[in-house]
Design a protein around this nucleic acid. Structure first.
Lengths: 79, 79
DNA sequence: ATGTGACTAATAGTCCGTT
DNA sequence: TAACGGACTATTAGTCACA
């Protein structure tokens, strides 16, 4: 079984940094605790769908995207 | 904000029925209560990533797929 | 075979701090 | 700025009786 918590964490961090947000800023904006964001990024937390959706929304992406393994080479999407 | 609980529920039901499983059978196989599956399909539950991943695995799909809006007309994917 | 409300046990999620 | 721990509270995980 894939480690989706880890995939989520990696994607989240990448997306957050792409928007040049600190964990603290992100956390504050979506009203989630900063230590919780930290835990999710490290793959040690098991967030609920609502939290995943909330984060995705702020990072201008989707839950599906945050849960997609990065190395998947989907050319057709960004083209 | 999109209702991802609902999207998940719809996709889950579709995927389950495609495999001709009853809620009861699915629930039994992945060791989750039947009524809990029912709640997720109806979009009234807010499951954690672990639960979503477990269900996805049994339905031979992925969390990302279960969280993707169906009516999204993404031509490039299946073509 | 599924929907639903109500319920406890477990854990998601917060808030405090230190490194 | 972020990792990490401990103690706390809110919500989810998981179960039941019944429609």
């Amino acid at each position: 079984m894939e480690n989706y918590k880890r995939i989520l964490g990696q994607n989240l961090r990448k997306a957050r940094e792409a928007l040049q947000l600190s964990q603290e800023e992100l956390a504050h904006e979506i009203d989630i605790d900063r230590t919780y964001i930290s835990g999710i990024e490290r793959g040690v937390r098991n967030p609920s769908l609502d939290v995943i959706a909330k984060i995705a929304q702020r990072l201008k992406t989707t839950p599906a995207a945050l849960l997609t393994r990065p190395a998947q080479s989907r050319r057709s999407e960004s083209a």
